[in-house]
Structures are given as structure tokens and as C-alpha cells.
């Protein structure tokens, strides 16, 4: 078998597996790539940043249009709303939007902050998320002085042992940062936990305030036997086959996050 044959075969197979519908024809938007395009103006207003690359704004537009053919008209509606609203503060502007315009704004904002559009998976290759940008992903900007954009550390070895920028470190033992036996080692055994914190860890509260209120109202953390019984019952609930790639649901615990 010739190498050329291998290559062709592999290319074909790859394309058959991962080919994703390509972007809509570039010509539709290419001539509008500039800071004055609707998408560039909307991006600037929604993020409060005037230095976003217009090329990347166009990428956002093309990807969102590929995802939803109605995006161009939604964008037109959004930019009208943004430019007729009073003020320039992104929070105020966003709060004033209709539900439809807010959804469009959310899609644009997610693209800029997270650096992709669509959904992604941590445990399957079956996702439709598309890359927008990494070096400009805005979610890293607020922390750029303290932590790296992963894979692009801007510092040298062992910088991480210093107190991070802007942190007032509590007093600690002189040997706290020493690994091994010369560092800190316990002199007691771990205590029995406080019931309210245990109650939280069992998934019944997300804050200690809520946990204490529940206990005051008569609730109590499960005993070890009850934990084991509950766990075994959960295993039996409706055992069946799943396929790798199914994302673990953590909605039960995430609810309390949006307080």
C-alpha cells in the first residue's frame, strides 16, 4: 500500500467523521469586517470594551449565523435596541433588553467571554461547540495578573509560592511552605464534624446559613447507616445501560449556586 494511498484514505475517513458544516459563505459578511459593523458595535457595547478585534467579531457573527439562520435579523434588532437605549454601561444596557434581544446578547457575550459558541463536553467528542478565540477570551482578563491563561504562563518556575497579587495573607507558620516532615504535621486526629457542615456535605444546603436554619427547624444530618442505605438504594433505582459521553448531571447541587 502506498503512503499516498494511506493518506488519502485517512483524510477521507477523518472528514467523514468530523466534518462539520462549514461557515456560511464568507462573502456575505466579509466586506463588513470593521469596527463599524453591527456585530463589532454590539460586541463593544455588551462587553464595555472598545478594543475587540473586528476579525474576531466577524467570526462570532459567522458562527452564530451558522448555528441559527435568524441570527442576522436578531442582531439587527439587538443593535437597534442597544443604540436607542440611554447610557453605555453594559449592565444597564443589558437589563433594558427584551427577552429576544437579551438572548441574542447572551450568545454574543458567551462567545467573547468563553471563546466558543455552541455546547462543549468534557467526556465526549460529540459536541457542536466551535472555537472563536482563546487569546482574546475575556473571562481570563479579570484574573490575568494572578493566574495564567492555561498553556500560556507568563512567568518562570515556582512563582506560585508567593502571596498572590492583591491578597493580604493571614499569618502562617514559618515552615508552612515546607514540604515533608520538616513542614507542618498534625498533632491530633481529625475531629467529628459540626452537624451543620455535615448536613451541607450531604447535599441538603449550599450555605452554612441555610444549613443552620434547617437544623434549627428540626432537620438533622443522616447517620452513617442512613447514608449507606440511601447510597445502595440509589444504585438500584433503575439500573440500565448508558453510553460513554453522557454528562454527569449535577443540577441538584448547582441550583443553590444561583442565589
Amino acid at each position: 500500500m502506498s503512503p499516498a494511498h494511506t493518506r488519502l484514505s485517512r483524510r477521507q475517513l477523518l472528514v467523514s467523521l468530523i466534518a462539520i458544516p462549514l461557515f456560511s459563505p464568507r462573502s456575505v459578511f466579509a466586506q463588513t469586517a470593521g469596527t463599524d459593523s453591527d456585530i463589532a458595535r454590539a460586541s463593544a457595547l455588551l462587553t464595555g470594551r472598545s478594543t475587540l478585534a473586528p476579525e474576531t467579531a466577524m467570526r462570532v457573527q459567522e458562527l452564530l449565523s451558522a448555528q441559527d439562520a435568524a441570527f442576522p435579523s436578531h442582531l439587527a434588532s439587538l443593535i437597534r435596541a442597544l443604540e436607542t437605549a440611554s447610557g453605555t454601561d453594559p449592565q444597564t444596557l443589558s437589563d433594558s433588553l427584551s427577552d429576544t434581544d437579551a438572548a441574542t446578547a447572551l450568545a454574543i457575550l458567551e462567545a467573547w467571554y468563553l471563546g466558543y459558541v455552541g455546547s462543549v463536553s468534557t467526556s465526549s467528542m460529540d459536541y457542536d461547540g466551535k472555537f472563536v478565540t482563546y487569546l482574546q477570551a475575556l473571562m481570563f482578563e479579570p484574573t490575568g495578573d494572578v493566574t495564567p491563561r492555561p498553556a500560556y504562563s507568563k512567568r518562570g518556575a515556582n512563582y506560585w509560592s508567593a502571596v498572590p497579587e492583591g491578597v493580604a495573607a493571614p499569618a502562617m507558620a514559618d515552615n508552612v511552605a515546607t514540604w515533608g516532615l520538616a513542614g507542618l504535621k498534625p498533632t491530633t486526629s481529625p475531629p467529628d464534624p459540626d452537624p451543620a457542615w455535615l448536613y451541607m456535605m450531604q447535599g441538603y444546603a449550599t450555605t452554612i446559613t441555610a444549613a443552620r436554619a434547617a437544623l434549627a427547624g428540626g432537620a438533622a444530618p443522616l447517620t452513617s447507616d442512613e447514608v449507606n442505605a440511601k447510597s445502595l438504594a440509589a444504585a438500584q433505582a433503575s439500573a440500565g445501560a448508558q453510553t460513554t459521553g453522557a454528562q454527569t448531571s449535577d443540577s441538584e447541587t448547582r441550583e443553590g449556586d444561583s442565589k
Binding site: S231, A234, A235, Q236, A237, S238, A239, G240, A241, Q242, T243, T244, A246, T248
Partner: peptide, 9 residues
Amino acid sequence: EATGDADFD
């Protein structure tokens, strides 16, 4: 293709 407990993937 995995088969197992209801509370674990």
C-alpha cells in the same frame, strides 16, 4: 457501552 449503577455513569 457501559452498564452499571443508576447513580453512576
